[in-house]
Design a protein around this nucleic acid. Sequence first.
DNA 1: CAAACTACGTCAGCTTTATTGACTCACTTT
DNA 2: AAAGTGAGTCAATAAAGCTGACGTAGTTTG
Lengths: 195, 195
Amino acid sequence: MPDQKGSADPRPPAASSIGLLEPQKDARPAAGANLLFLREEEIRLAQDLLFFAYRDFTNAADVILEELGLGRAHHRALHFIGRNPGITVSDLLAILRITKQSLARVLTVLMEEGYVAQTQGRADRRQRLLTLTQTGQALERRLFERQRERLLGAYREAGGVAVDGFRRVMRGIMDESARDYLDQHDPAETRARRA
Amino acid sequence: MPDQKGSADPRPPAASSIGLLEPQKDARPAAGANLLFLREEEIRLAQDLLFFAYRDFTNAADVILEELGLGRAHHRALHFIGRNPGITVSDLLAILRITKQSLARVLTVLMEEGYVAQTQGRADRRQRLLTLTQTGQALERRLFERQRERLLGAYREAGGVAVDGFRRVMRGIMDESARDYLDQHDPAETRARRA
DNA sequence: CAAACTACGTCAGCTTTATTGACTCACTTT
DNA sequence: AAAGTGAGTCAATAAAGCTGACGTAGTTTG
């Protein structure tokens, strides 16, 4: 039980810099609009949210990974190969934003253990297209199920409108290139519904 | 009392538990409501969202950290010390979920560089209460500003309702203990507005 | 009060995950 | 034929985490 601030609380001027940037004379009466005045505290809360949600979300799959002697890096590779069957090594590198050598180590293990297979590119034979094997798909699914439980619970509690908001904000946080990537996976069908 | 789990949730039932899992014969034309039928793809999209948003959000501060020879671990410590002045070492450990030794390495650097100061606990003199020095506050602010830009942009684009949804979903994803922690920082004032 | 427990620090050794830079090989493009 | 690209690999290194064990000061309790 954290008891912080229990005793001698050296906390400096707490709500010190409230009005962030412009005091923003929010004239809009729209519902929820008052939530939008972005004081510092609101942003700091979001930092916390990202940290905890990501921490616990990734953690959900760790038990399984540990059994198999794999790490999160392997999970990430499995996830993106599974979602992009036939992806090239360089495309995968661009998604993960790690170096070729870091990826190589991970891929080597995944191929040795029979989770991932390579096939030579047809158009460009220099390419090694990555896919999940049956085993790989099965593992990815186990990992997925764990994380799915969490998201399902969160989605249920929050409701559909909240989920939509969640998506919008998350998209806004990431780089434009990441949004572009997502749009390839989330094409017309879903985007249409969003409009 | 902070809202635990789903029970006793004071929040408006809104469009919560719509046809989840069920193929949902959506009669409602309400915007976003039909987004809620949780096919596998929807969950996988969320995995992507978390990965990219977290990747790019944390990345935003990396440039500054690199200049100073610090890493993300240092940033996390700075952030949570800044947000909990006078926090004890063990409380910080509980938040970060790393081992004492890992934290020790980080804290040693931060204290050597003059970003963090320790004071002996008054009630319990075994405790070493951690605070940011002036320098530490200044650095934390620089890092904060970078991440703030991103969030500000995302919040503006998404709008107040979306931000509220984002918060709800993120809270739902994390462990209950993390939600409890947040409730200490986000007391009456903010929660009231949310209702 | 003495024993037991707690908060913190630290030593020693280890693993995972990442990094940079240079190089080869096979293939494609110009 | 030359230049460029996709992929793999070598070697060396770093950041950030881990376990287990132990010491010391301080607190709580039988």
